[in-house]
Design a protein around this nucleic acid. Sequence first.
RNA 1: AGGGGAGUGGUGCAAUGGCAGCACAGCAGUCUUUGGAACUGUUGAUCAUGGUUCGAAUCCGUGCUCCCCUGCCA
Length: 561
Amino acid sequence: MTPEDTTISTDFIREAVKEDLASGRYNYVRTRLPPEPNGYLHIGHAKAFLIDYLVAKDFGGELNLRFDDTNPAKEETEFVEAIKEDAHWLGIEWGDREFYASDYFDDLYDWAVRLIKAGKAYVDDQTPEEVSRNRGTLTEPGVNSPYRERSVEENLNLLERMKNGEFPDGSRILRAKIDMASGNINLRDPAMYRIIHEPPHHRTGTTWCIYPMYDWSHGQNDSMEKITHSFCDVGYEAHRPLYEWFLEQLGEFMPRQIEFARLNLSYTVLSKRFLRRMVDEGLVSGWDDPRMPTLRGMRRRGYTPEAIGEFIEKIGIAKNYNMVDIALLEATVRSDLNIRAERRMVVLNPLKVVITNYPEGHTELLEAVNNPEDESAGTRQVPFSRELYIEREDFREDPPRKYFRLGPDREVRLRYGYFIKYEHHINDENGEVIEVHCTYDPETRGGYAPDGRRVKGTLHWVSAQHAVDAEVRLYDRLFTIENPLNSEEGKDFTDYINPDSLQILTECKAEPALTDVQPGYRCQFERRGYFCADIDSTADALVFNRTIALRDTWAKIRKGN
RNA sequence: AGGGGAGUGGUGCAAUGGCAGCACAGCAGUCUUUGGAACUGUUGAUCAUGGUUCGAAUCCGUGCUCCCCUGCCA
């Protein structure tokens, strides 16, 4: 595509890039994707990643993946691999353009020396507490460090010795010399290097014991890589003057930083820190718990990368604070899976049905459509016999108004099977229905009545004799309130965890076509929702996760009554 | 309070001085061998106030509300 191409969607970021190309500020586009390898990716990262990737792609540019590994205390190789895997899964490609902030430690050090020589940086011996106290407050200016006017020679010497490991952690920092009275606190002589001896860095080992701060690394790395556009969270807006100050002082290539609003999703939290807490406190089973908004969790739950991409496109890009309704995410997967997922019949809460006029010991195969939305998906054979399972909720002794399913004196259709008519039912000693006896109409094979009579309800079913046992895990929203972080006084977000966010069903009966499915297999269970075989699933013990339930009009009617 | 940013239906995003539109949610209906899907119709918004203008969501003034910033985190 060319910059003039009007088919490029017109969010304010793409508009800005287009303008930069038109004005000649840049004559190519190169973005960067800068994860810190200190945790797993969540759907909020997916938004940022996709912006970096797709903007570059739309303008025929390049994407640099660059791990922001400037703090050895928090970062691990394990996360590097996990992030790459998740990003690939999302469909993001960066070819061999894979970099690390730590690739630039030597060059960055040289740039720091240049800044000292220009009188724009100094080594400060104040304690962390003194630095903090002297920074001032939002309304009062800070006060200059007593070490601010050291000579260039002394600063050079001290920085060198910091690098050589002569000083303990926290004893000194290198600071930019800007303005302790600035209204923008980021400009009050921000720290550039701090001393960290332990632990060793995941890539550079013990080579370094001084590490750059974000502000003294990110923009410099962008510049070194000749990044044209550096997209980030609005939280970094106040850092932009600093980003530009450093590069101006150095006279180096100037990328353009553009900020956009991070994604907030209702009924969940999108913050590495809080997600980590849930994992650490055992509130969920891990980073890949299917209830987690992490990419790994969502993948395990059965979300497709296409659905996530679609969702990100739908929510758009702006600078407003936002709280996106999770219903939009749910609607998006539903619509994605509706088109691609094959249908199967699985009874979640089985109730036995005996077809009294069906020959004992007989089995026949009935043809079922795999996907009504996709003819090329073909058909399959489903075994039918005298004893079947239907959903417990599909029979009522005393059917309420507008209930279209099985009940006394009612006739319903078994999907792709026959019409069956109620005869009688059996209760156990507790009054619980344990068996329903029906007759079938042999003329309605396949579910059509030659005499044209109609039935209100169509039920899914599984032949008892041919059923495969399965465990099914039903998931619901993780939190009971829209914004768990905006909690009442004295309450923690964990106080709002939905106690019913996981329900495990162990007596489920699946049609035999599901016997051999592998973990990751996705399909729709007719009338129930979209499901995905879990990584715990084996040939001997099938386990399915519910990705999302089908839209349920009946539930709404019931609720309204 | 100092600095920075943002205010459009319930939610998210458009409209770039010229008919306030799209999606999700909601409501009503059609169709239906998934109470699914599809299709049709429909309710509902420019933070307030003053100004500029033939004309303002858009430009200007004032006020209000919300978000971010006082790590040797990113």
